[in-house]
């Protein structure tokens, strides 16, 4: 939301009453700098009234809360009431990049979010408390997800690098539609 296109796009969606939902997945950091140092407005939601559309801020770690807010926005979009801006307040569990030394975030802050506010664990607890998910089912879902990720990593590592010739393919489309 610090870039011009964010504002241009919301303004356009607002004047044309487009069925758009603008979602800001706010992990509260740039690469290494906290949002508070670079944006005076605390909540992205508060930018919405500037463009004449409603804004919501929701706990991005709470799947059920996000779903409820999204449902209202979808209803607005479907009924011709125009766009909604939704800020999902979340957190980046890992570094910005591989090799990120994490010298810019308080260790306790990271540990709190990772240990106490993991959205997958929170949803699991929510469902188990309501007897909609058993521990066995939860474990099966988690192990299936881990297996899928491991298979994807193995596939990527086993795949060859692109051939040198690919650097000049898929660059242009000729007027006759043929790819060059």
């Amino acid at each position: 939301m610090q870039r011009g296109t964010f504002h241009e796009a919301i303004n356009m969606g607002a004047i044309w009453k487009l069925p758009v939902i603008y979602v800001c997945e706010n992990n509260q950091y740039q690469q290494w700098i906290p949002q508070s140092r670079m944006t005076k407005v605390t909540s992205v939601r508060d930018m919405a009234p500037s463009y004449g559309i409603p804004g919501e801020s929701v706990d991005g770690q709470d799947v059920v809360a996000v779903s409820q807010v999204a449902r209202d926005a979808i209803e607005r979009a479907h009924t011709g009431q125009g766009p909604t801006l939704i800020e999902c307040v979340t957190y980046r569990f890992h570094g910005h990049n591989l090799g990120d030394l994490h010298e810019y975030r308080d260790k306790e802050e990271v540990a709190y979010w990772v240990n106490e506010l993991d959205p997958i664990q929170l949803l699991g607890t929510y469902l188990m408390e309501r007897k909609q998910l058993s521990e066995d089912e939860d474990a099966a879902i988690q192990s299936a997800a881990v297996a899928e990720i491991r298979a994807a990593v193995a596939f990527a590592e086993a795949s060859p690098f692109p051939a040198d010739a690919e650097i000049v393919t898929d660059v242009f489309t000729a007027p006759d539609g043929a790819a060059r």
Partner: peptide, 12 residues
């Protein structure tokens, strides 16, 4: 017709 938003015009 659009607002004076060149980046969004090309983006659209």
């Amino acid at each position: 017709e659009t607002p004076n938003s060149e980046a969004a015009i090309v983006g659209v």
